[in-house]
């Protein structure tokens, strides 16, 4: 076709006979040959590309399998080292409260209890705060120049090394919180949870510090989830005459529930696995106390405080408790997956 001195070349590349690709180019006359040779080199490049594709596929496959292999190896090694303790104590390990390195009799119930209780306290405090702050940061309650520094500060909490947070807990937080514990004890002491002599190093203190550590996780994932919701949802709800709160509570949070639950479960796993802060603040007392303001122990604090001078059976018992912690975390994750699936089905 000649249009005003220039040639319009229409290339029909029948890729698979079904989807012809029409390429329209306007160029000066006499360049048709060049177009042909361009096509030749294009095909060569394609084969090089497919080689690269293949290579990339295998590389990523090896990496992915490698990660899984590392996990399997870790579990295997821990299981192997813990085997003497597993054989000696069996499942009774989970229900015994004795931890006696002299007699070599071990049971981890107080530590399992402490791990679950402190993580539960942390979640109880962190979930409402985290979800609330995430909502606050995604809605335009305040202008961006206030929101941005707040988000930044929240991200920075994650950057605090846990040992520093532990020190802060010992020297700043515990002296600060003690009077409040006294008040709590004198007013709500009739509830077993707040009975007894309130102590600074306690399950509650650890729970609160853990809450500080996991709040940013909940905030950032929940915030991401809420931001990723289609704006049509909000508009739809507002157009139905929903107020801002009704929109948030009845539409946005339910729509983002799987992400929110995911963040909570991730935070739960983090709280259960946190070691340094636990060892520094929980009081390391091998007992089950109903009162939250009494000292206790967690699996992580147990391992961290005893590993150094442990004998053979004791090491096996410590690794057994570590295995228990891994299984607990795994159960939490499976549980989270189940919840997320359930809600996604509703969606």
């Amino acid at each position: 076709m000649i249009v005003g001195g220039s040639t319009i070349v229409i290339n029909v590349n029948g890729w698979n006979g079904k989807q012809p690709v029409y390429e329209c180019k306007t160029m000066s006359a006499g360049t048709e040959g060049a177009t042909q040779s361009n096509r030749g080199s294009l095909e060569k490049r394609l084969s090089k590309q497919s080689l690269l594709d293949q290579g990339f596929f295998w590389l990523t496959l090896v990496m992915a399998i490698g990660i899984a292999a590392v996990l399997a190896f870790v579990i295997y090694e821990i299981g192997r080292s813990a085997l003497p303790a597993i054989q000696t104590f069996g499942l009774g390990f989970l229900f015994s409260t004795t931890w006696d390195p002299v007699q070599n009799v071990y049971g981890a119930l107080p530590q399992i209890y402490g791990t679950l209780v402190t993580s539960a306290i942390a979640l109880f405090l962190a979930v409402p705060i985290g979800v609330g702050v995430a909502v606050f940061l995604t809605e335009d309650f305040v202008p961006g120049y206030i929101r941005t520094p707040i988000s930044f500060a929240i991200e920075l909490i994650v950057a605090i090394p846990s040992v520093v947070l532990g020190l802060w807990g010992i020297f700043v937080f515990i002296p600060f919180i003690r009077p409040f514990y006294q008040v709590l004890n004198s007013t709500l002491g009739w509830i077993p949870l707040f009975a007894g002599v309130p102590r600074g190093y306690s399950l509650l203190t650890l729970g609160i510090i853990l809450a500080i550590m996991i709040v940013p996780i909940i905030i950032s994932i929940t915030r991401g989830t809420l931001l990723s919701l289609p704006p049509e949802l909000r508009q739809g709800a507002m157009a139905m005459g929903a107020t801002r709160w009704e929109t948030i509570i009845r539409v946005l949070i339910p729509a983002g529930l799987s992400g929110i639950i995911g963040s909570v479960m991730l935070a739960f796993g983090r709280a259960m696995g946190e070691t340094m802060v636990a060892a520094m603040l929980v009081g390391n007392s091998n007992r089950i106390s109903i009162s939250l303001m009494n000292p206790g122990a967690t699996i992580t604090s147990l391992i961290a405080s005893q590993f150094g001078e442990a004998g053979r059976t004791q090491v096996a018992a410590l690794l057994y408790s570590g295995l228990v912690l891994m299984v607990l975390t795994l159960l939490v994750n499976i549980f989270a997956e189940m919840i997320i699936k359930k809600f996604q089905n509703v969606e």
Binding site: E232, L233, Q235, G236, A239, P254, A255, V346, E347
Partner: peptide, 8 residues
């Protein structure tokens, strides 16, 4: 709306 936007 232009795009159907039922709630989930």
């Amino acid at each position: 709306f232009q795009k159907p936007n039922p709630f989930p």
